[in-house]
Amino acid sequence: MKKWLPLIIIAIIAIGLYMKGSGFYNSVIEEEENISEQWSKVESAYQLRSDLIPNLMKIAERYAEYEQETFKSVIEARSKATSIQIDPSNITPEKLEQFKQAQGSMTSALSRLLAVFERYPDLKANENYKEVMNSYDRVEKRIKVERDRFNESITPYNNLVRKFPNNLYASIFGFEKKSRFDGDEGIENAPDINDSIRKN
């Protein structure tokens, strides 16, 4: 019996490590699914913003036909922003940075467009314009909420893979710390869409 005791102890330790490792793995997969789901909501919110731009441009062009350069910059920024898609299962810091920069350019172009609108009182008085702007304001608020929720979903995952002894299993399974969506200058200060309406 004594000669089998070390083998039995090793077997018990191995089973314990296996159970701990499999439990850890399943927990990380669950957290990754939460992150993926929340990221899809972030992208959906930005897509809603992008979808409103053609309506806004259509209304604006009737009143501000001489602002073609500004319109062109908005169209180009929208095209670039919608071309960058991120696989939620592989949100790398580099890809997240590309997405943030593209959306920041979109925000910057829209800020310039809103500044143009200030020169056209008739445009600001248009009911269709007001309706689109109100929708836009709601979308900007939703973007902020979904970004915050995405960042919140990152915390339990990062805690799980970085704490000892889980970090040992994380290195074995290839799980790494994930990046948050930190706002850039152009993103964190989203344009106050309704400001032009309130001034009217």
Rank of each mutant, 00 (worst) to 15 (best):
I197A: 06
A109N: 04
V116P: 03
R180A: 11
K177H: 10
I91W: 00
F181R: 05
N128R: 13
K141W: 10
L114I: 13
E152M: 14
L168H: 06
T155E: 15
F173T: 03
N158T: 11
T155N: 15
F181S: 05
D184C: 04
M133V: 14
V161E: 02
N134R: 13
V116L: 11
K163E: 13
E94L: 04
A102L: 02
D122S: 07
N151L: 12
E140F: 01
M106Y: 07
S179V: 08
Q98N: 09
Y157T: 09
R138D: 14
F117S: 06
S111Q: 06
K177I: 14
A115Y: 09
F99I: 00
T92I: 03
F175W: 05
L96C: 00
F175P: 01
Y120D: 06
A170N: 03
S153P: 08
Y129C: 11
R147F: 01
Q103W: 04
F175Y: 14
F117A: 11
S111F: 02
N159V: 13
K100C: 02
N158H: 08
F164V: 07
N166M: 05
K144F: 15
N158A: 09
Y129M: 15
P156R: 10
T92E: 00
R112F: 09
Q103H: 13
K141S: 15
M133W: 03
R119G: 12
A125G: 14
K100W: 01
S89V: 07
L168C: 04
